[in-house]
Every structure is written in C-alpha cells, then in structure tokens.
C-alpha cells in the first residue's frame, strides 16, 4: 500500500474523529468476518470430507442397485422391460423439497426426498413374470436415489459455501489490506496535517511575535530616541550641572 492512498477528507479534527471510529469499526468487522470465515471453512472442510465419503459410498450403492437390475433382467428373461419403464414414466413419485439450514448466517439448502402419495406407476410391471424382482429393484433404487439426493445436498452446500467463503475472505482481505491501511494512512495524514498546522501556527505565532517584538522594539527605539533627545537636553542640563558639579567631561589635563 502506498502511503499516498488515503480517503479524500479535509484534515480536520472532526474528520480525525470519524476516521478513528471507522478504523475501530473496521477492526471489529475484520475480527468478526475472520471468525465467520473460520467457522465456514471448518464447516466446509467437514462437508468436503463427507462428500468424499458419500461419493465413495455412492459407488457401492449404485453398484448394488445396478446389480438388482441385473436380477430383474434375469428373472424377466429379456430387456424389453427397460424400454417399458422408460416409456411409461408419467408423473414423478419421487420428488425433493428444499429446506434451509443456517450455518453462521449462511443459508445452506438441503434437499429432502419425499414420495408423492399414490400407487407406483410400476406396481404392475412384470406382473406375470419377474414382478417381485422388479419391486425389489425398485426399492433398492429408491434407496440409492435417496443416497444420491443426500449427496446432492452436500454438493450444493459445497458449491454455495465455496462461493460464500470466497466472498467472506475477499471481504476479510479487503478490510485487512485496503480499508484498515487506508484508514490508518488517513489518520496519519490527518495527524501530520494537523501537526503541520500546529507548527505553522506556532511559526506564525512566532512570526507575529517577532513582528510584534520588532514593532515593539521600534517603538521602544523611537521612544528611546525621543527619550534620548529629551534626555539630551536633560543631559546637557545635567552635564552643565555635572560640570558644575564635577569635571567628568573635561579632558584630563596633562601636566
């Protein structure tokens, strides 16, 4: 930060007061935001770890689910069932709703899965053959998708937290590296300006004093002069009188 960077204020005592309270505010804000950022980062790390675990878990869950589909294929004997399922889908029975969770003032969405009331569209799939496997597979996949929904919540939280932490850190850094130095600079500037003013004032006063003294001196001199001329007369008189009284003015007589 260059020392020149400062707020455009007039270096007055009032501005100094404002700046000082601003600096104080910035420091408090910095501390608070820093703490927030730390809390979020902690949370963020937790979530990241959970995502890591959940993603691995998902691998297993999906594998089991895929395998249950293989069982269906085995029981039904052909794979036309896949086509039938992709074609008969109409209304989603499995849906998600979003709720919010408050972490240090950040609202993190969390998906929650729920089943819409009503019989499943696939309740009768494989009625004559393989129906039990189909239903079982349906359950397995429902569980798998629930896991996926959980993971999606984590991931969304991850994305949002990532964003929020970036913003908060940016603010923390902005306060730390821009606002505080700048305010400090301003204060320094104001102080220096005020000092300068003080010095100027002092000098001015000194000057004024000098002038005054000069004038005084002149006046004094004048007065002295006047005094002198008047006193000359007096002196003369005095001298005369002195002479009368003594012989100080006389040169020594050399004998």
């Amino acid at each position: 930060m260059s020392g020149k960077d400062r707020e455009p204020v007039f270096p007055t005592r009032q501005a100094l007061g404002i700046m000082k309270s601003k600096l104080k505010g910035a420091q408090v804000g910095h501390d608070l935001l820093k703490r927030k950022s730390e809390a979020l980062t902690k949370r963020f790390r937790e979530i990241t770890k959970r995502i890591d675990d959940a993603k691995r878990k998902m691998g297993r869950v999906m594998q089991i689910a895929a395998f249950s589909l293989a069982e269906v294929t085995y029981a039904v004997g052909n794979n036309s069932i896949a086509y039938q399922i992709t074609e008969t889908a109409r209304q989603a029975k499995f849906r998600v709703r979003t709720k919010q969770e408050n972490v240090s003032g950040v609202f993190l969405p969390a998906f929650e899965s729920f089943q819409v009331e009503g019989a499943s569209e696939f309740g009768m799939t494989g009625l004559g053959k393989g129906g039990q496997q189909v239903q079982k597979c349906r359950e397995t996949y429902t569980r798998a998708v629930e896991t996926l929904v959980e993971l999606a919540s984590l991931q969304t939280a991850f994305v949002i937290l990532d964003e929020v932490i970036k913003v908060v850190n940016r603010r923390v850094n902005a306060i730390e590296h821009v606002i505080i130095p700048r305010t400090e600079n301003t204060i320094k500037y104001i102080n220096s300006e005020l000092d300068e003013l003080d010095r100027e004032e002092f000098f001015r006063l000194k000057k004024v004093k000098g002038v005054k003294e000069k004038v005084q001196a002149e006046e004094e001199a004048e007065r002295q002069k006047k005094k002198k001329s008047s006193s000359d007369k007096e002196n003369e008189e005095e001298a005369e009188s002195k002479n009368v009284l003594g012989d100080e003015g006389d040169e020594d007589v050399i004998f």
Partner: peptide, 13 residues
C-alpha cells in the same frame, strides 16, 4: 440401465 433403475424409483416425469 441407469435410467431404467432410477426411473423405477419413481423419478420419471
């Protein structure tokens, strides 16, 4: 296969 399974869970709309 993946789509079939996930639709089976009732996701399809």
């Amino acid at each position: 296969d993946s789509v079939t399974g996930i639709l089976l869970a009732g996701v399809g709309h």
